[in-house]
């Protein structure tokens, strides 16, 4: 940029306060109890001091998740802020854990905390699932019926992650996922 000197005594405030969650599957406890809040932050500097000292997603154990949600929204479908919503789903191939996973997850976080989406009010949070069969990243929005907003977020996501136009990503409505009985069509939107 230009020759702007930074005043490091002032932290840069974020539009929203965000909470990082960690999920680890302990069968002796309920699913909800296995979701643990790690920390919340509302400045750029506090975000980095958290991010710089936690493990990157690619080094987590299989079966675990990180979730980053606006403070007050729990990373689950049942939360009032999520129950009418859905998620843009990015399914990664196994080999992408080494190539793309950490870059995608960080770029998604930067989109969230930097309010990169025009319709960022619609964004609830994002989840990364570390799984043997292939990792997944979801960007959760609060109202699946707001098609224009959902599509804007999906398009911006693809652009920011440099996902090729040959690859299509889909948006799943949480309610459909919950009610899923067979292999009926999965995605309500795709970009």
């Amino acid at each position: 940029n230009e020759n702007v000197s930074m005043d490091y005594s002032i932290k840069h405030p974020l539009q929203n306060c965000w909470t990082l969650w960690y999920f680890e599957n302990d069968r002796n406890q309920s699913w909800e109890k296995n979701q643990r809040e790690i920390a919340s932050f509302d400045t750029v500097e506090d975000f980095w001091s958290l991010y710089n000292h936690i493990k990157p997603a690619s080094e987590l154990k299989q079966g675990t998740d990180y979730s980053l949600f606006k403070k007050g929204i729990r990373p689950m479908w049942e939360d009032a802020a999520n129950k009418k919503g859905g998620r843009w789903l990015i399914s990664l191939e196994k080999k992408q854990r080494t190539n793309d996973l950490d870059r995608y997850w960080l770029d998604i976080i930067l989109c969230l905390i930097g309010e990169a989406f025009e319709n960022s009010d619609e964004v609830c949070g994002a989840v990364v699932n570390i799984r043997y069969k292939g990792d997944k990243i979801g960007v959760w929005t609060g109202d699946a019926s707001k098609g224009a907003a959902v599509l804007e977020i999906g398009r911006k996501l693809k652009e920011r992650l440099h996902i090729s136009n040959r690859i299509t990503i889909g948006y799943e409505v949480h309610k459909d996922t919950m009610d899923k009985t067979g292999s009926s069509s999965k995605y309500s939107y795709s970009v």
Binding site: Y8, P13, V44, D107
Partner: peptide, 18 residues
């Protein structure tokens, strides 16, 4: 009010600020 928006590079540049 105005939304506080940060560019990706701006955020990355603050990663190792003191």
């Amino acid at each position: 009010g105005t939304k506080i928006v940060y560019e990706r590079n701006f955020l990355l540049n603050l990663r190792n600020s003191p």
